[in-house]
């Protein structure tokens, strides 16, 4: 990785952290409603994995799909930050035109195929995206990000089996943050190391530190190469931690302050900035300046855009339920 890329990635991760922090504030101001799940602490995973994916080519990108904790995956995949924030604000200019909200960010123009609230639901959808890529003979792959808890759904087993049997170009990324809401993995899951679970399906798998972006990138590159070369699906597990509650309504009574502090020492942004400072690529002041630029952009551009954008019109309530412009040959009316 060259120095410019390192600095860019650090800036991206800081941006993602600040973006999430700002959504927290907007939620407190009641500008954002519904459930809001923040990604703070796990930035190195989405940033690092997707850095190695095929992006920046619009609809020729790799496909990305995830759960409800989806803002950062969407942003890194290329969804404009203004549109993601406007979606959280429920505005017509939002990524899903205000119909989806925080848990359902979509941007098919960059092949970000959505955030889904039903735990485990994206597993088969991802395999389907991969089936489409394979069928078209394209080099694209599908990348599915889900949590450790999702692996206890039936779809996990059903999909791992089919992905392997059909040799689908799909990368499953398990973001193991140790918890499914308030239930620690030790209390819910017989096998702690998630990557071991797919051996039942004879699938390639590995486990890595998810707090160090360079480790993530190195592991992701291998896994993505494997999948893209047609060798079949791959399951990659990253050990990580979410710094905030599961969602906004979480008093975090299920974990200790000591545990949190232990993980905060391994904050992916701290680890990476410290390394870049040690390598002489950047100074504390540079980082402060970076943060200021980011905050300015978020406040003066992204938030301003979201605040000023119009709400969807109530007359448009029925838009987007079915194809709004269907072909009468298939739909009707029926000639009596």
């Amino acid at each position: 990785m060259n120095d410019a890329d390192k600095k860019r990635l650090l800036k991206e991760m800081i941006f993602f952290r600040r973006f999430e922090d700002r959504t927290f504030e907007a939620y407190m101001e009641r500008k954002i409603g519904g459930f809001l799940h923040l990604y703070s602490g796990q930035e190195a995973v989405a940033t690092g994995v997707l850095e190695k994916a095929m992006l920046g080519k619009g609809t020729d990108n790799d496909y990305v799909i995830t759960g409800y904790r989806d803002h950062v995956h969407a942003l890194k995949a290329g969804a404009p930050a203004r549109e993601v924030m406007a979606e959280l604000y429920g505005k017509e200019t939002g990524s899903s035109r205000g119909r989806g909200g925080s848990m359902h960010i979509f941007d098919p123009s960059v092949n970000f195929m959505g955030g889904y609230a039903l735990v485990g639901q994206p597993f088969p959808l991802a395999a389907g995206l991969a089936m489409g890529c394979k069928h078209k003979g394209s080099k694209q792959i599908a990348i599915c990000f889900l949590g450790d808890g999702a692996n206890n759904q039936g779809t996990f087993h059903e999909t791992m089996n089919m992905a392997k049997v059909w040799n689908l170009p799909v990368l499953f990324v398990c973001e193991n943050n140790g918890y499914a809401i308030g239930t620690h993995i030790d209390r819910s899951t017989a096998v702690k190391d998630q990557y071991k679970r797919v051996c039942a399906y004879d699938m390639e798998a590995s486990q890595h530190d998810g707090m160090d972006i360079e480790t993530v990138m190195e592991a992701a590159e291998k896994a993505i190469d494997f999948v893209r070369s047609g060798k079949g699906p791959y399951f990659i597990e990253f050990m990580t931690y979410r710094f905030r509650g599961h969602s906004m309504s979480d008093a975090k009574g299920y974990r200790t302050r000591e545990e949190e502090l232990e993980w905060e020492k391994r904050d992916p942004i701290k680890i990476f900035s410290k390394r870049l400072i040690e390598q002489g690529l950047i100074t504390e002041d540079d980082i402060k300046a970076m943060e200021k630029d980011i905050d300015d952009e978020i406040e003066n551009d992204i938030i301003k855009f979201s605040e000023e954008s119009p709400e969807p019109k109530v007359e448009d309530l029925h838009k987007y339920v079915l194809d709004d412009d269907p072909d009468p040959r298939w739909i009707g009316p029926l000639q009596q």
Binding site: Q121, A126, L129, K136, E158
Partner: peptide, 26 residues
């Protein structure tokens, strides 16, 4: 076999796979 696909007995997930595939043009 790539177009007439015998699936395992996994209704929720093979339907989901069909849905995912349909999102990319199938």
């Amino acid at each position: 076999e790539e177009r007439v696909i015998d699936t395992p007995i996994s209704e929720n997930s093979y339907t989901g796979i069909g849905i995912g595939a349909s999102m990319v043009g199938m």
